[in-house]
Write a protein that binds this DNA or RNA. Structure first.
Lengths: 187, 187
DNA sequence: AGCACTGATGTCAGGGACTGTCATCGCGTA
DNA sequence: TACGCGATGACAGTCCCTGACATCAGTGCT
């Protein structure tokens, strides 16, 4: 192997992130992304299902880290603590804060990209629900714990990439979790 | 007014729901939807921003009912109980169960439609967060309560439209809420 | 060497979503 | 009557995305 430049997918992803940042998502065509990566539009669509997917290549690793942490948590742990373990495990596979901020800025700039982000999160929630069920957690409790975990993740993650924030992601996730507990105990 | 048939938007929505149910979302073109409603494709896009939006016309009424209930809840109520009031208020603006099942079946049949459903829910969550903040709930607590409320809504709603289910939506929402409380108190 | 085979890419044609622009037409109003 | 307004139609065009076929370097077999 090696007739063409290697790392085709990564080159496309980098080109896309650059162009989306330079001119915006709508003002960038798939043909331009492919050209910057030294490829053709047709080849782009052989690596990514659509124009948005190029920004979401890491979702699979995220799912794997989360569900593995859930599966490996001690059998005695309560569902919400299993969630906590999964959240901390997620933090390990994230890029550095600057990259996360750049990507988050692009994704937040266009509703189509937000939609994709949301369905990735929902897919993750479904996988976590399944992992919890596999531990014996009842159906509805598993679903609610997973959704609540996504809420904690969202809040903690957004705090992590906020401009002035200094603390690290695991700490912020733990803090958001205890805030959720306080809120839901309030009634 | 009255030079053309009235209720253009509703005719388009009905035609779309029919066609999506008959042949599926992908196998239906916007031109076909417009033709069944006695209009042209160009006119469709003057009433709905894209092919998916025609299924989500009720989102605005939902947001209004929810945020009004939140705003009108007694000042002494805890955030999570305010959420409960909002959830019950939502139930009032829903169509009958059969229609909801039909629409849910179409939306669930294609990822693009699921994406749109998710961003509508996220928009609703943001509006509820804002309504809670307006009541004096701290930022993060408001966001977490809103997200948790969406989780409760999702679980309760899906239970409501499940094939064998007999109970009514408000009861199922209340039940899901108490289950969430039980889960988050478990750690 | 000669050969077929494989796999990633290029090329081309085309459908369908969506937009900009201008024309049309019935109605209200001066 | 003349004029403007507002919803719609007609038409051209861009871009997203797909199917079909050709190309071409490497691999293994003979």
């Amino acid at each position: 192997m090696g007739r063409w430049e290697p790392n085709t997918r990564e080159r496309l992803a980098r080109a896309a992130l650059e162009l989306f940042g330079e001119r915006g998502y709508e003002q960038t065509t798939v043909a331009e992304i492919a050209r910057r990566a030294g490829l053709t539009e047709r080849t782009y669509f052989r690596h990514y299902a659509d124009k948005r997917e190029v920004l979401f290549g890491g979702a699979e690793a995220l799912r794997e880290a989360f569900t593995r942490a859930v599966a490996e948590a001690p059998a005695s742990a309560a569902p919400i603590d299993v969630m906590a373990a999964g959240l901390v495990a997620i933090a390990a596979v994230f890029p550095e804060r600057g990259t996360a901020r750049q990507r988050h800025s692009v994704v937040g700039s266009h509703p189509e990209l937000l939609e994709r982000e949301l369905i990735k999160r929902a897919t993750l929630a479904a996988a976590v629900t399944e992992a919890l069920r596999a531990r014996g957690v009842p159906d509805h409790a598993a679903a609610l714990a997973a959704e609540a975990g996504m809420a904690v993740f969202k809040v903690g993650y957004e705090r992590w990439i906020a401009p002035a924030e200094q603390r690290e992601l695991p700490d912020l996730l733990r803090e958001s979790l205890s805030e959720l507990k306080a809120v839901t105990a309030g009634g």
